[in-house]
Amino acid sequence: MAKAGARAPILELAGVTAGYGEIQVLWGIDMRVRAGEITALIGSNGAGKTTLMRTLSGLLPVRSGTYRAAGIDLSAARAETILRAGIVHVPEGRRLFGAMSVEDNLLMGAYLRRGGRGEIGRDLDRVFHIFPKLYERRTQAAATLSGGEQQMCAIGRGLMSAPTLLMIDELSLGLSPLLVEQLVAALRQLNAEGVSILLVEQDVTIALDLSHSAFVMDMGRIVRSGVSSELLSDPIIRDAYLGVIED
């Protein structure tokens, strides 16, 4: 995908705070996510990763600070506007529409697009090409899919929104290693086709192996960031998140 200034940040957060009611979860997030990359967001449970994702997709409002995507200010934007800007959120736990068919779930992803049947049909074919399993099960209710197929359907639904940045919350949770491998391969292929990816992943080895750069969150703040391969060999990261005991 030819982009002017491919290194311009696709996400740029400065001092972003957010939370639920009286409880503040994010305490000033600063981060720059580069276009064209796979970026990982790691951290322990309760660090605020999912809250950050919900804020980025507009499910939660930004309370203070600025949130820009490819130069557009989205600090006060609604979910719809953010989606139109190409920021697409595949939520934790898939959140498929269980009683609807796989194909209808995918079409829901294209809800905002006015491209007409041709364009949406082409994207549907593309998703079926990436995940042939979904084609086999296209008329089945999404709730009847296995966990891995549900994750494929959720990612496929995200792709139907024509993302420039695909944010995936918990890619591998509850899936077999073989399935995770397939999904990782699919994400690599998507990234090669020009889709930037922001990945929240509890398996830090997978996250750092797959991504170009990574951010580490703790207590609602970004506490570390850098090139993934360097973070992978960082003793503090290894100690805190990989459970490796150094000799």
């Binding site: 499910l59 979910a79 139109r84 939520p91 529409f97 269980g98 009683a99 905002l112 639904r157």
Partner: peptide
Amino acid sequence: LDRDAATLMGVD
């Protein structure tokens, strides 16, 4: 079925 997920699809 899922109000939040529908919001993520851009549904008002």
